[in-house]
Design a protein around this nucleic acid. Sequence first.
DNA 1: CTGGAGGATCTTTTT
DNA 2: GATCCTCCAG
Length: 779
Amino acid sequence: MSKPEQKSSLDVPIRSPKPGGIAMRAMAANTAPYLEGLNAEQREAIEALEGPVLVLAGAGTGKTRVLTTRLAHLLKLGLAQPRQILAVTFTNKAAREMKHRISTLIGSTVEGMQWLGTFHSISAQILRRHAELVDLKSDFSILDTDDQIRLLKQLIAAHNIDAKRWPARQLAGFIDNWKNRGLTPDKVPAGEGHAFANGKGAELYAEYQQRLKTLNAADFGDLLLECLRIFQEHPDVLAEYQSRFTHLLVDEYQDTNVVQYLWLRLLAQSHRNICCVGDDDQSIYGWRGAEVDNILRFEKDFPGAKVVRLEQNYRSTPHILAAASALIAHNEDRLGKTLRTDLNDGEKVKVRGLWDGEEEARLIADDIENLQREQQNLNEVAILVRASFQMREFEERFITLGLPYRVIGGPRFYERMEIRDALAYLKIVSQPDHDLAFERIVNTPKRGLGDATLKSLHEHARARNVPMVQAAREIVETDELKPRARAALQGLIDNILRWRSLIETTPHTELAEMILEESGYTDMWQRDKTAKAEGRLENLKELIHAMGEFDTLAGFLEHIALVMDTSSDEAEEKINLMTLHSAKGLEFDVVFLPGWEEGLLPHQRPLDEFGRVGLEEERRLAHVGITRARFDLRISFAANRRIHNLWQNAMPSRFLDELPEEHIDVENTQSAYGAHDGFRANQPGSRTQPFANTYDTPGWQRAKAAQTTGATQQRKPVTIDGELLATNDPDTSDFSLGERIFHQKYGYGLISSINGNKLTIDFDKAGRKRVLSNFVERT
DNA sequence: CTGGAGGATCTTTTT
DNA sequence: GATCCTCCAG
C-alpha cells in the first residue's frame, strides 16, 4: 500500500504554526467553533489528546459528539493525518454516522480516513494485505453465517455424527465463541472441546479451519483472529501498523471481546494515544463474548490513563432519566454513574398492562395515530422489542392501518433466499474457488443435478485437491456421470466459464442481469405462481440496482459481506421498529417498550444459562431501551402471548417493580382485564384462570401487590431471584448424575452432567440444555 | 436418483 | 409461519 499521502484533503493551513505546537493549540482553542457549547468534562475528554484516555459516557451524554469532535480537533491541530488515525466502531451505522459528523465539523469530506470503520472491516483490510501469512490469498472470500453452517453440516455428516443431536448451529456457536476469545483450535480448553459430540468439538474446529483455508475463505471470527495472529507472529508487520497509527479511538468499548481487546492493545502499544469511550451500563453483548472487564481494567493496562466521566444527560426528561437510573441501580456489576439533566419535567413514564400481544400492538398503533394527529414526526417514534418475533404483530397492525414503518436490522435484504442465490452466481463467477457458492447454485434452478452428482463432484474435488468447478470440468470429460446429468453439468460449466470471460469487458450490472437471465434463475421465479414470487423478482431488480453504486463486482461483494445492512430510506417519514440491541446509540422523541414480561424481558434463556450475570445484562438492555427516549416513554406488558403458536401467560417483568413509582403513571387498563369480547376470550389458553386474582381489577398496582402473594408466587414461572449466582462450587448441587428431574419450561429429563449448580440435562422433548439446579425439581 | 409433499421444530440478541 | 428434514412416488 502507498505511504501516507502528502496532500491532505483537509484544509489544514499551509503556513501554520508548528503542528500540535502551543501556538497552534491556543489558536484552535480560541477559534474552533466546534468546541463551543461543550461542557467541562466533554472538553476535557476532547482536549486530552496525548496518552491513554477512558471516557465513561452515560446514555445521552454526548458521547458521539465527544468522539467526533476529538477526531476533528486532532486533525485541525495537525497532530495527525487522517491516515494515521485508527477509529473503530461496532456497527456500520455508527461508522457512517461518525464519518458524516466529522465532515460536518471540519467542513470538508474526510477522504483520507481509510481506517475509520468497524473492527471487522478494518481487520479485513489488514488481513487482505497480509493474507499469505495465514495461508490465504488476498482475494479470500468472507463467509456469512449461512455458508458457515452449511460447511459445518458437511463436516458433521462426514464424521457420522447425529446431526439431530448435535446441530451445526450449536457447533458454529462454540467456534464463534472460541474465536471471540482468541482461541485457535490448539488452544481450546480440553473440557470445552469435549462439550460437542462427545469430545469431537475441538477436532471439528480444527478441520473446519482447514477447510476454510482450502476454500480460500474466512468467517467473521477469522477476520479478527487471523489478523491478531499476524500481529503476534510477525513483529515486523505489527511494528508497521504500530507506527502508522499514532492515534486510536474506540467507540462502545464495553462491547469489545477478548480478541478485539488484544488487537487494540497491541496496536496502541507504541504511541499509547488511545481513547476509549464506553458505558458499562450499556454492555449488552456479553453473549457475543464482550468483556465488560476490558473497561474495568483499562487503567491497569494503561497506567496513568486519564478517566473522564460524562454524566450530564442532554437527551431525556427527568422522569425518564430517573426511571433509567433507578432500574440500573439494581445491578451490582457496575462502575456507577449519576446522570443529571437540566431539562424540564415533562410527562411521567407510562406503564400499562394488556390482555395479549395483539391488543398491545393495536393500542400502540392507536397511540401512534394520535401522535400523528398531533403532528409528531414518525421518524422520531420507535418501538423497541426484545426479540424479533415480537415485530410481526406490529407489522401486521401497521399494514392494516396503512401506517408507514421501517424495520431496522430485521430480516435483512441480503439474507433473503433469492438474493443469496443471485449472489452465489456472482460469487462463483468472481471467485473461482468459492465452492460453497457453486454448491448453492449447482441445482438452482433445477437441472437434475442431485445428491448423487454432487457426491461424485465432491470426491473428485477432494481427491485432486481442486475447486469444484474445476472438478466439474474434469468430470464431464469422463463417463462417470449419466448422460443426462453430464449434459446438464456441461451446460452449467460452459455458462460459468463464459460469464467469467466477460468479467473484464462487461459492466457488472449488465453481467449480473445476463447471468440471472441465462442461468434460468429469473425464469424460475417467473414461472412460480405463488404469492411471494413477484416480491422476489422485485428484490432481484433491487439487487442489480444496488450494484450500480459500486465500481466493480469484487467491490460490491466485499461490501455486502461486511456491511450487511441496507441504508434505509431515511427521507421518508416512518415509524421505527427494531430490537433493543440495534437501538443502542439511537434516540427518539417517543419510545414504546412492549413485552415487559418475565421470560421475555428479562428473557428466560440468559437467566437459565448465566444466572445473575444474565439478569444484569437483561437489565442493561431494559436500561438502554428507556434511555433512548427524549420525552415520551411508554412501557407495556401483556398477560398472554403467543410464542410459536402456543399461548403462554406471563407475569409482568420484575423490572417494572424496579421503576420508581413517583416517576411512573400506571394507566388504567380496564380493557385488558375487564370485559372481554367473546372471540378473544375463546382463544386457546387465553382465559385460564391464572390471572383472575391478579388482574380482575384495573391497574398495575394490584398486579404488583398480587405479585407478592403466595398464590401468585406459585404460578410465577420459576426464575432466579437477584441473589442467585452460577457457581462451580461442587457443594451447591444436591442432584446426582442420571437423576430424573422436571423443569418448568422444558419438561422432564435426565441429568447428564453436573458442574456446581449448573446442570446439563437431556430433556425428553427439548433436547440438551444447561440449566441452574434451582430451576429443576425431583420427580 | 430426483423432486415433491408433508411433517417436526423452532426464535435472543449480531459483525 | 417458516424453514429444514425425512419419506415416498415417479
